[in-house]
Write a protein that binds this DNA or RNA. Sequence first.
DNA 1: CGACGGATTGATCTGCGTCAAATCTCGTGG
DNA 2: CCACGAGATTTGACGCAGATCAATCCGTCG
Lengths: 237, 237
Amino acid sequence: MAIFNDFLRDRRRDELSSEDLQALEASVHAVQNVPARHSLAISKQPIGVSTYLIEGFICRYMDDREGVRQLVAVHVAGDFVDLHGYPLKRLDHDVATLGPCRIALVRHEAIDQLVRDRPNLTKLLWFSTLLDAAMHREWIFRLGRLDAVARVGHFFCEIEAKLRAVELSDGRQFSCPLTQADIGEACGMTSVHINRMLKELRERGLMHMQRGRVTILDLPALRRLSEFDPSYLFIGE
Amino acid sequence: MAIFNDFLRDRRRDELSSEDLQALEASVHAVQNVPARHSLAISKQPIGVSTYLIEGFICRYMDDREGVRQLVAVHVAGDFVDLHGYPLKRLDHDVATLGPCRIALVRHEAIDQLVRDRPNLTKLLWFSTLLDAAMHREWIFRLGRLDAVARVGHFFCEIEAKLRAVELSDGRQFSCPLTQADIGEACGMTSVHINRMLKELRERGLMHMQRGRVTILDLPALRRLSEFDPSYLFIGE
DNA sequence: CGACGGATTGATCTGCGTCAAATCTCGTGG
DNA sequence: CCACGAGATTTGACGCAGATCAATCCGTCG
């Protein structure tokens, strides 16, 4: 089947034995295509399946009182989007597609089986949920300590690094279906100000974005500006 | 020994069998007292032990380029502070005490044993690391979507709810060794502005804080102001 | 008593939000 | 093939929340 080709790719994938991988593949109970801007899971409902993202972009978010979104995560191919829903039993946030996606669904009873039989795989699944937590921490840092330009730069540095790990970025170009409003929801800013910051990054010769395509012109400089250190992504370990 | 008396208290503690609890207690290899403002773990170093907090307050934080701290978590009694270091093998942030603490240390080899033998306990340990991730998400929301008063209010609502779960708050009063500068580092604000917002909360009759003692005067109103919904803490489930 | 870290308050500055309008892009149907 | 409309992007003018700078006050401890 080869659904999990990108899972933990360029991270600890070598620790995944072929038996573990087979067991993981066998636990998939459905594969689906989902259109863009489509809700996948709603906060507080008990859930019994988790979603693995084969292709596309998915976000997780929370709404404030007025219904304004705050994204808390953006996922790309190879991410087990809401595996944390397995130990938690329900989610504390909503999940939705950004662009069109291809996803695999895994029932929690199947994961129970894996946890019972495969301590090594269990540790890797656990690891993958903690990668998300590490990204959350970096988002806290981004929102708490960086100014507007650096926030936007940092956001794209993260996306680029994640995409590169699954060979969807060559370090210069990648496609990314987010609107400026989406980026604003991720960075805690208005879309108007995102627009100005993108202009600034463009004029400084660091990066530009048009029609769902991002071009990074000077990655080292962009990372420096954004205080971006990719070690929290555990890539290449 | 009864070291883990507060672990997952008022959460899923009933799912912890007495054998699991015994195995957990047996895996502790040292108990220590640590003074206030003391560093416990440093970013990027490989680690082989995790820290369980028996008593006191601990924070996790990251520094920006100029060395200004951003807290990413505050821990209280009953928290397994850096259990996530077990699957990750190293930390992406620093850990330090806020006030004086009593901690228990658990070697990762001991946890390996637990993961191999005790799937149910493993799932609960996993769960506890994901509680931290849920709190991270709430911090992202706080920084991204709330204004200054609500940020401070939300922060204290969280601390209060966590302390109440281990009976260190009665819903009205609790002690909390954080300075206004610490709170600023948690909320992404300056200590000056924290001071003004505490004044505002005091004048509105919602809460006040003096010499390490917090008094909540109107919890429902404070929660309303701060858009605080404790369900992400999974208390009482 | 003096010193020092933390709390408090005032004055001023600025980064980003808000509001509003213009332009661009692309899908849809006549 | 063009007209239309919805959504996304871009730009300008203006206001304000929170930062910054700086001075004073307070409580604790040697």
